[in-house]
Amino acid sequence: MATALSNPTLMHRLFRWVQGFDVPLAIAAVGLAGLGLLVMYSSGHDHGTRFVDHARNMLIALAVLLVVMHIPPQRWMELAVPVYVVGVCLLVAVALFGVARKGAQRWLDVGITIQPSEVLKIAVPLVLAWWFQKREGQLRAADFLVAFAMLSIPVGLIMHQPDLGTALLVLTAGMAVMYFAGLSWTLVLPPLILGGVGILLLIVWEPELCAQGVRWPVLYDYQQQRVCTLLDPWKDPLGKGFHIIQGMIAIGSGGVWGKGFMKGTQTHLEFIPERTTDFVFAAYAEEFGLLGVLVLVALYVSLVLRALAIAVDAPTMFARLLGGAIAVIIFCYAFVNLGMVSGILPVVGIPLPFLSYGGTAMVTLGVCLGILMSIARSRRLMPG
């Protein structure tokens, strides 16, 4: 009897490994991964080793997920400050001697090329959740100021690279933690109202603001061009507006049913730029049509709602804040990418979760899902 207990069978070990696995979250993730492999094969099978590499990245992300889900939330809380400090140090290293590509210095060569800003998408919610957990029951206005300072450092460093898209994602994740921790709506609404008014004024005065020679403060020239291109892509249909126009043509040409797997003309005649990365949704919509898009959106909605449900049921404030922030991160990834490819948001370098090619982003996604699994697992394995 003692021998049997000390030497569990393989099935018993596997059961203990997956005990607490959140099935609804896994179903949504597997569905998205399957669609990702389909569209990557169609759009990238003749693009070097993109499909094979994408499948490999998914397997790596799965391995990361399985490891991370066995790290309890309490341990993540202990790692929050070290991960944040390491992430900020990597951003400083990028600013000092990072690898520059296409006019942006966002990468670091450490034997392999990594993008440290991806680390901050996890590190910032981690450290802010840790901070508010420490202040639970005694929150003051000064605590939110400290949290905003911790958020501003990585956001400023990422904007300096420049990488406005990632900076906004990190800012949104951090602000989500602050809001879930109790930040008043009276402080949230004014910036939102100002932003809405600014967008309306930009649309109304677009001819004057986007005229030749006009330069906007704060934004880089290429960022200004992207906003102006969004407002009127037909000003330069073969240049700056080409991405948006071809993306919209591909999406519209898919119709209700789509052109069929491997039959996307815009995709395979190479009219869609970056068809395996930022604009992979255009290739997907062309081949699978409106019905395929509805399935894709339904899977994203299911994933985000399940993440929020896990956050609500989390046993500690730290886990609730972290889970909620991860749900917001996944939502922003999907919403921003779908929006920019559809022509309702400016083009930024934001990948579409599970579908876009990219190793660092895929591993980050694996970490996010692993943390959600860890939170769900900790709740289910609690005694009583």
Score class of each variant (00 low, 15 high):
M175I: 14
G292Y: 07
L381S: 09
G87H: 09
F335H: 10
R275G: 01
M69R: 07
I27E: 07
A33R: 02
L294Q: 02
A93G: 09
S152Y: 04
W76M: 01
L200D: 00
L321K: 07
R377M: 11
A123V: 00
A26C: 13
M58R: 05
H12G: 15
L62G: 12
V119R: 00
P233F: 00
P72L: 03
G292E: 01
H243K: 09
S356D: 06
Q19P: 07
L209I: 11
Q138F: 12
S152R: 03
V341L: 10
V81W: 13
M362L: 09
A283F: 10
D109I: 05
T277F: 04
S378R: 09
V86Q: 02
Y333M: 04
A250R: 13
I203W: 05
A309Y: 02
L192A: 14
K240H: 08
K263Y: 08
Q138C: 13
L231C: 00
F51P: 13
T267E: 10
A176K: 09
Y357D: 10
Y220E: 08
S42H: 10
G247S: 15
E118K: 01
C89T: 12
E118D: 04
A167D: 00
P217K: 00
V280Q: 01
I112A: 10
A176M: 15
I27G: 01
V214E: 05
A100V: 10
Y220T: 03
G359C: 11
L365C: 06
M382V: 08
A307T: 04
W205K: 12
A104M: 05
P351K: 03
I71D: 01
Y300W: 10
A250W: 13
Q133N: 13
G324S: 11
Y84M: 06
P233W: 02
Y284S: 06
T186Y: 07
M11E: 12
G20K: 11
F279Y: 08
